[in-house]
């Protein structure tokens, strides 16, 4: 990486007055020094409920220790027929390298739009999820450097979330955190959404322990969980902050909520 900014004559660049001799011997084959990725930080989070899905992301964009902007959305409505996407039924969140995220979003949006025009109905989350995987794997050897989460309502009207790795491996889940603060948020979600490590009081010890009964959470509680998760992440991770963008998908459409986060 040091070579990326070096303008040393021995590395084919102009001369500096101070010493910056390269450590690799001249004459060796030089690796190209352009690295086509960067990390723009930020985090996303998705939780599905009985009849809704919430996908959220912070709005900070960073490069290194710099804040590029305090408002760069990572959560997008997909496949609507207008520029405002008011009749969209799907939501995509992307976190990682923002330029790839933008390119991926535009490509998926175009494909889902074409599906809608050709079939006369919106694409199902299941179909879109498979399609997104195909797109990501299509660039297996020059990947979109993003962690994507796709959300919507399934054919039965239940909340559905699909999470991805950068090359298209995917899985339907109850909830998922991704991005810079994923490791901070995910354990919290395991505990608060899937009740991991929660047991019935007085049910005994060891194998006698009874797990707490799994019940789906109501929307208001999930919204609070999301806000708490991000408030905590902002406290501990420097790349997360500024604003919280939430998309709530129900049978009545997609509701967007913006809440400020700490800007420090």
């Amino acid at each position: 990486m040091a070579a990326m900014f070096s303008q040393n004559p021995l590395m084919n660049g102009p001369n500096y007055s101070f010493n910056q001799t390269p450590t690799t011997a001249a004459g060796d084959n030089k690796e190209h020094s352009f690295y086509p990725y960067t990390d723009n930080g930020g985090s996303t989070l998705a939780i599905s409920g009985v009849d809704f899905t919430i996908i959220a992301g912070d709005t900070r964009s960073t490069s290194g220790y710099n804040i590029n902007t305090r408002y760069a959305p990572k959560v997008f409505k997909i496949g609507g027929t207008t520029s405002s996407q008011e009749d969209a039924t799907l939501v995509l969140s992307v976190v990682g390298f923002a330029a790839d995220g933008e390119a991926l979003k535009e490509r998926l949006d175009a494909i889902v739009k074409m599906y809608r025009y050709q079939h006369g109905k919106p694409m199902s989350v299941k179909a879109c999820a498979q399609r997104l995987s195909t797109i990501l794997y299509g660039k297996r050897f020059f990947p979109y450097y993003v962690t994507a989460i796709l959300g919507g309502l399934d054919e039965e009207g239940k909340g559905a979330i699909y999470s991805y790795d950068p090359v298209g491996s995917y899985e339907r889940e109850q909830c998922r955190a991704a991005g810079a603060a994923a490791s901070l948020i995910m354990p919290f979600l395991d505990n608060q959404v899937n009740f991991k490590n929660q047991y019935m009081p007085g049910s005994g010890v060891g194998h006698a322990l009874q797990e707490r009964e799994k019940i789906p959470l109501p929307r208001s509680e999930v919204e609070d969980l999301v806000k708490d998760a991000f408030d905590s992440a902002v406290e501990r991770h420097i790349e997360v902050g500024d604003g919280l963008q939430m998309m709530i998908i129900t049978k009545d459409g997609i509701e967007e909520i913006y809440k400020p986060l700490k800007r420090d």
């Binding site: 990725y37 960067t38 490069s63 590029n68 305090r70 760069a72 390298f97 923002a98 330029a99 933008e102």
Partner: peptide, 8 residues
Amino acid sequence: LLGTTFSA
């Protein structure tokens, strides 16, 4: 140069 965009 990477295609990264933002506005502020």
